[in-house]
Design a protein around this nucleic acid. Structure first.
Lengths: 216, 216, 216, 216
DNA sequence: TATGAATGAGGCTTCATTCAT
DNA sequence: AATGAATGAAGCCTCATTCAT
């Protein structure tokens, strides 16, 4: 009512990007929790500082919002990975560190994992449509390719290593560990997800990957 | 319309179990394709030889149908695994065969994989409620435990092997290979999923698992 | 399975009237509790020793069952009233006793009251169709008419008393006391329905009715 | 179709309260006529100037609509009673007027009576949940309490009169007269509901209540 | 006399989305 | 840049009832 209040309200309302960030943060949570069909635009709007109408204003429709939420998820994760400094490490140590890091990183970003799961349920259609995300991942694989090249050059890794296949191996363990935790816990107990078990699994995984790289 | 048709219709009517099997087969496909929220009861009914009403007659509600569909999926897969004859093989060979088999089996049962993905999205709630499935999986892990025991006794496997952790390793690779194929293909190309690449990945996986078992 | 069991089962199954009584008893409860639309044929069947199919076999449809249930309710209540012996009492005492009895009787037969409430909601259509019930009530009013006649003849009641109007007065208090107990309790407290309050209300009602009969 | 019509439609659109009033008016009629289970949301929507969707938009679900309809019914009736000016009348005259008024008022508001009947069938659950209605009725009983107090103070009413019990007596006659008209008519003829009979019943009731107040 | 299996019709409710300002 | 009101289409589910033996 007062001019003061209006000013305050305007302060962030007049900042379209802040509004969009607000919506996206909520959207990621909602989509990660309920999937694409299970997510509710109403629920997203309710947890937002804006109204449902704004979602359509900025993102067009539910799928548009989902696509942007997916992009934001990938972006955030890849930014986290950027902190890794592997160039100055010898190849084996670099690979070791990369695997361990990925394992932990996935564990710490369950919402991202869930977004990817959901995207796989939907045959990666939104992903295919997003050039942004593809670019992000090309960069990610470059890092691994560099390690492989150095390792081969130094003779510590076997020749003809496929960085993509290596990434597949690293991802498989790290991803499955988070994605399938609910069913795995129910079927075989939650013990595998205790801190000590997780530490051992991570170590096992690191050693398995290194064995593959050095293989033969 | 014709008397013939009526006869035919009758022939499978009045056979409740056949009707339920019919519905379940369609339901698995629909749920695997669209998820729990995305699945449409109408669509399931349409692909069935019965009516929507019968779905509710036999399964109560959508969640009831989903739960049964999940159970059926697990059952079918575990039955497939039962054909494996591992007892007469030496431990290492048995493990090798189990890993390779699991890898292939998951590839050949994408609908099962998708059902499990969906169930993970839903925090394994339906799974937790189904004693049937838990029993099935207890049996599955027994097989692996037996291999471990024999391997340890013969001194070919390291002591203290955790069958559940081993199952985790086997599942991670085999499951991820199917579950994340869509996103992985979009981001890093479909080459990893070619027959030759898959053969190599399977071999790599087998060797990695064996390395873990023999480790140290 | 055994012949013995079959015999036992047959023992009451072969008694159609017992089956119908079983169904009707359950039906009265269900209709009284949920009303005509609210009652569920499935629920009635479930609480019965027979199947849903039998309900249709014996009563045609839901409305047929409801009508019979209503008839049975009236019958039971009127039979209860038959135990009253008023002929040998002087008119005032007879009327006093009739009022007090009705008051108590209604309190003790809430299901009957609810059936009548429900029938009123439905504009007494089923009642209008049932000659059985009309006959029952003609008999009931005769009793009151007799008391009035004797009272007038003896000069203790005023002339021109209308037995139907008197019945209206008696019913109003006795019926309302049961029918509106839920709303009345919520709005004005349940104290009016305590034993002591009820005793006083009954006495007040008796006196009020007698005042009307002796009036002027 | 015509511009005129669109204008008209617009004129009352965008007026949420008008829309809600429209819906509620229709809802009261439908619920009063068919009860809670018997009422059809479709039928309500059809008699409305809005669509079925708006019912859910404003009232959540059928029970929510029913609850509001019940509240509106009570409100309307209590507002009608507010026109009564009893303070300036001597106690006996005030009570006489209150009884006569209630008797007529109930007769003129059969929909309200039916709503209360229906609510009683449902054990007053909606009523119990509505603070609004409870407040309304507290006010209603205050009026009666005031009359009692004045009457006792002036020595025209007996001491220890319970206003709630008195309200029970007044309501019993006035309510039953409307609620049980259908069954009573079928069983004992419609003559009791003729204008002359009703006038006499009202008078009888007034006198009976006054007799109770002055009693002893 | 009895019954397990089946069902058409219609019930309530929810969804993403657009209108009109 | 922003919004409260409104909605068509479709979702899930339940009901009394009948079929076929």
């Amino acid at each position: 009512m007062t001019t003061k209040n209006q000013e305050e309200k305007r302060s962030w309302k007049q900042d379209p990007e802040a509004v969009q960030r607000d919506i996206l943060a909520v959207a990621v949570t909602e989509f990660a929790e309920h999937g694409l069909s299970g997510a509710r635009v109403d629920r997203i709007a309710a947890r937002t500082r804006t109204s449902k109408r704004m979602i359509y204003y900025y993102f067009g429709d539910k799928l548009g919002l989902y696509t942007r939420a997916l992009e934001v998820s990938y972006q955030k994760v890849r930014e986290g990975e950027a902190s890794l400094e592997l160039d100055h490490l010898p190849p084996a140590a670099a690979l070791e560190r990369l695997v361990a890091f990925t394992f932990d990183h996935h564990r710490n970003n369950p919402d991202f994992i869930r977004m990817v799961m959901i995207e796989n349920i939907h045959q990666a259609e939104a992903l295919a449509a997003s050039k942004t995300i593809r670019d992000l991942n090309v960069a990610a694989i470059e890092k691994l390719k560099d390690i492989c090249n150095r390792g081969e050059a130094e003779g510590v890794f076997r020749a003809g290593l496929d960085p993509v296949a290596l990434h597949w191996q690293i991802s498989a363990a790290s991803f499955f560990n988070v994605s399938n935790r609910p069913t795995f816990s129910v079927l075989f107990g939650a013990e595998v997800f205790s801190e000590t078990s997780q530490a051992r699994l991570r170590e096992q995984t690191v050693e398995a990957i290194l064995a593959i790289a050095k293989q033969k």
